[in-house]
Nucleic acid binder design. Structure first.
Lengths: 218, 218, 218, 218
DNA sequence: TATGAATGAGCCTTCATTCAT
DNA sequence: AATGAATGAAGGCTCATTCAT
């Protein structure tokens, strides 16, 4: 019961962590100063030593989610492997039970921020863009390596990938029984994969890169 | 100056209509009794003659959006035409400047309801499901008519379609410059279309990877 | 102990009355919603049914003080009497023990508003101006009637009159022993009176109007 | 980047200087510890090494204003010159664009302190009294030197002088267009000057109305 | 000596809802 | 069918001040 006296940076981290929980539990407007400080074991006034305003907390939360997301994704990418396999890895990462159980998908935080202040939406926009950029780069690389059909436009494909994540999370939010990690989601992924791989023209040229795929050629 | 004395049913409709505007403007938590009744020209207390609670308003709003959506979609489907063309029509309908400018995309209302009460989420779930059902049926029909590849799973494809709508609206919300009706969105549609159409020509070449799929080849 | 359910207009009056007391007691920043509503026996939320904001209360307070002031002054002016006597009456009215004991001199409320919002200062400005206007008109009339020297500029004289009131109140506020109604204040008034009456040139012309003065010409 | 480590006495001076600015900008309740220390570049806690409390700052501020005021006035008085000219000099000093533009008229600080603690009001009272004393002495001297009518009571005249300053500042605060240094203010001064000078010439003519006055004519 | 962290009381305002009329 | 007055809880935020380090 002793009041912990944390250092600025640690308190900030703690607050962001609690903020994440609150948003996960009930959206951005469940993130109130009262609840936040109560959970953190400090007074409301103390919060303002570490953040300028509630908006400041939200913005930093989004930034943190952004950083963690990028970091996690990048570390899970195998630059020597197949880019389509990497995409699948990323998708599974979003669907990982740990993340989803906590409800802290970046999608959740993103959607919850839609109607907040201009500054918060700006942070949200950055999150969307940096995420799309990573996926886009990966697809571009896949095309270069001949793993993805060269008629595929990376920007469209990355948006579709984002859409897959988003729709999965949305379904799951409105119906918790509909967990993304079941078979149906697998076939959603297969549909996407197909749209990347297959394209009929210049078949001769594409055949070779496909050799790297598993379970093919006999 | 005379206060219009509307009939119960008309007042309800009027209130739902205003509720739609408010949610479009600033999400579900912009829907307050105060604003609602002020816009409707009635007292706050009067609202409770027509709805049991604020939640009741939101639920009825979602239901109404649901009905209107289904209705609009169904009336725009040409049962004699190509099912893929129908899907494109539906997509353009979502992107129509009228709808988007008002921000009343069903996606907006849906996402805005994610963290409301259980009952509201139930209504949201119904909206998601009935929408997916329509798209699913359309795809199923397309397969039957041979317009869509028979290896496509209607459930996955409908979710992907939903995802396309959702990601487009999300991007647009966070960056209003990124309007869904520009070229990039077109190519998003083309990517999806490809994943539906292609597959069956050159069957001999493509068959192998799909061996893992169920219910095929015989 | 029964909760009184007052009508809008009565509640407004009551609130303004309490606001007056609070400002008198401790300046404008003693006027808090908490104290106001506690004294009025209503909840803080209830206050907002009758006024839009705290500023709204202050502005209406100043307006009310303004009206009452003008009204009181006008009713104490004897249009048939000597204008200088009228001015003295007005001064004594400001100094009346009833007003001062309560500390609700308009000067007090005025000074207390100096550093509030632009809108409040606007109301304060109106108060200053309407007060000066009355005094000015009275002096102008006095000149017309030959009771005040015609070289006197009404605008300057009215400001000086205001200054007399203000300095008296200020002294009294900082030192309650220095009540305006003692001999020294009388001689302050005489000094002012002198500056209005006496002017040496054209004595022949001024002598006649002075006949109306008491204790003169034998 | 190195924090300046001022000596106790210098830090105090600096703080009082900043306090003056803050009060000028927005009255006494714009003088907060936060703003004060931020401007001074020290922590809030550090302030309490130099002053016991916020009130202590305010009291010392008033004292400082007092000292500076007396000092400035005294240095601008020409003991060989005409005392009425000296008064005019003092008035113009108060109206000097530098002082007014900064809003640091002693009147402003005085009025802003009206509703503070007893101790602060005490300091305010001292300020009022020492100011009045100076003016009073000057007028007394003027009478002795025959420059001011001997029927003028120094105490009343000094209060009226104070009133002139006060009303000018008040008008200017509520309406910044009404700057004290325009023609109208000049005529305010002339009115005051008249009330000091005139009276003794044409004594024979004026004597009658003054019969009612005490201690005259012998 | 000086800081960084925290406090507790208070600020104005908005919320959904109730109830007597 | 509707009003007008009121409620209690909660919202974000600022204040002067204290105290362990």
């Amino acid at each position: 019961m002793t009041k912990k006296r944390l250092k600025h940076i640690d308190r900030q981290k703690q607050i962001i962590e609690i903020a994440k929980e609150l948003v996960s539990e009930g959206g951005v407007h469940n993130l109130t100063i009262r609840k936040l400080t109560k959970k953190a074991g400090i007074t409301e006034a103390a919060l303002y030593r570490h953040f300028n305003s509630r908006d400041d907390v939200v913005i930093n939360l989004i930034k943190e989610v952004n950083e963690k997301l990028i970091e996690t994704i990048k570390s899970s990418i195998n630059s020597d492997g197949n880019s389509i396999d990497d995409l699948e890895k990323i998708l599974n990462l979003h669907y990982s039970s740990i993340e989803l159980r906590k409800g802290l998908s970046f999608i959740v935080i993103l959607q919850a921020s839609e109607f907040e202040s201009q500054e918060i939406r700006q942070a949200g926009n950055n999150l969307v863009r940096s995420y799309l950029k990573i996926i886009e780069d990966l697809i571009y690389l896949g095309i270069k390596k001949g793993e993805i059909d060269r008629t595929v436009e990376p920007e469209s494909a990355s948006m579709m990938f984002f859409g897959i994540v988003q729709v999965s999370v949305t379904r799951w939010i409105f119906d918790p029984e509909h967990h993304p990690l079941n078979e149906k989601s697998k076939s959603l992924w297969n549909l996407f994969r197909t749209s990347l791989e297959f394209m009929d023209e210049d078949l001769e040229l594409h055949r070779v890169p496909f050799q790297s795929n598993t379970n093919r050629e006999k």
